[in-house]
């Protein structure tokens, strides 16, 4: 067995980025993701990289843009209110077709909200990570090991499709420790002939400004063709006891762990419950969910929000299953026991 390390989710994300060859990290502290900054401030100098604590979240995302434009693997991280500030930079990166990885360790909102775990940035991440016609890749790990692995996947996909990728987790996943076995080798960075200083010509313009509408439309259409390819290829999910389930719970991230415990408890009582866990939120694994939901007939979406994923689930499921919702919000983490009650009520 290769060596296992006990790491916080936040530390796993940071070490994975270092292992993936990221040498440019721009951050700003905010609970519950500050460990990422703390880790990077120690680790980056050891590997000849740059850790820079910017003057604000907006500065940090724009520094990420600058580093990415030169072809470097760059990362920034924050938590909900800080991510909101980054939306301008995210939109500019989409408009410049620049890859990067953005980590959002979600906390309660709106406004400053609270500091406890939340999933209330689902819409922000999947619908409007910035202004304009754009998309962002959104990955939703559920264990500390996955926090580690997903960083590799996110950097690679961001470079392949030339777009920002968000690792969407929450305070629970960021703060908890679990064993991590680092994967052997991260995928090598993609060739970036578009980058400043790379390929020919060495002098290029990377900009999101197109004053001729037809030209901008053309650029956006080309970009959406890439999005469409990402949509076909990247969606991922995991099923747990879903095959013969009569009630299918749909949950991502930390909430999926609690849903999994509720499913196990329901099965022990003889109730056929199952779990469908999206591992990507954009693209959303619609086909896979539709198939699983049609078999079960009843779906219960569980989130740490007022039900932001429900619309995606409804779009995927159509009229093949009834869709219900249970959520806690504001930083309250649902308990397996209260979920079990909901499942029993549905059976």
């Amino acid at each position: 067995m290769s060596k296992r390390y006990l790491m916080k989710g936040n530390e796993a994300v940071a070490e994975a980025a270092v292992m993936a060859g990221c040498r440019h990290f721009f951050g700003y502290p905010i609970t519950p993701q500050t460990e990422i900054n703390a880790y990077m401030s120690k680790r980056m100098p050891q590997v000849g990289g740059i850790y820079l604590q910017a003057e604000s979240e907006i500065a940090a995302i724009n520094m990420t843009l600058g580093a990415s434009a030169t072809g470097a693997r760059a990362m920034t991280s924050s938590s909900s209110p800080g991510i909101a500030l980054k939306t301008e930079g995210i939109s500019y990166m989409c408009g410049c077709d620049l890859p990067c990885v953005i980590v959002n360790i979600q906390r309660g909102g709106p406004g400053l909200g609270g500091i406890q775990p939340s999933q209330a940035d689902y819409y922000l991440a999947t619908r409007a990570p910035g202004h304009g016609d754009l998309r962002m890749l959104v990955f939703a790990p559920a264990t500390v090991q996955e926090m580690f692995d997903t960083v590799f996947t996110a950097f690679d996909a961001a470079e392949l499709y030339r777009m920002p990728a968000m690792l969407l987790a929450d305070g629970l996943l960021g703060q908890m420790m679990e064993p991590v076995t680092p994967p052997a080798l991260p995928p090598a960075p993609r060739e970036k002939l578009w980058a400043l200083g790379a390929g020919a010509p060495k002098r290029k313009t990377i900009s999101s400004l197109y004053l001729k509408p037809e030209e901008l439309e053309e650029v956006i259409r080309l970009r959406f063709a890439r999005y469409s390819e990402a949509e076909t290829r990247l969606s991922a999910c995991e099923e747990y006891l879903a095959e013969d389930a009569r009630v299918l719970l749909v949950a991502y991230g930390a909430t999926s762990r609690i849903a999994r415990a509720a499913v196990t408890a329901a099965r022990e009582k003889g109730h056929k419950a199952g779990l469908f866990r999206p591992k990507t939120l954009w693209p959303f694994p619609k086909e896979q969910l539709r198939a699983a939901a049609a078999k079960a007939g009843k779906v219960l979406v569980v989130e740490m929000s007022m039900g932001q994923m429900v619309s995606d689930v409804r779009l995927a499921v159509g009229d093949t299953a009834a869709v219900g919702f249970f959520g806690r919000t504001g930083g309250v983490v649902p308990l397996p026991e209260e979920l079990l009650e909901r499942v029993e009520a549905l059976i």
């Binding site: 296992r4 006990l6 519950p32 500091i115 703060q175 908890m176 420790m177 679990e178 064993p179």
Partner: peptide
């Protein structure tokens, strides 16, 4: 708690450690 979690890690078991954080 971390020491207890490390015992499990060294024994090759599955383990999680979840802290209270904040105020």
């Amino acid at each position: 708690g971390k020491a207890a979690a490390y015992c499990a890690l060294l024994e090759g078991k599955e383990v999680s450690w979840l802290p209270s954080y904040g105020p």
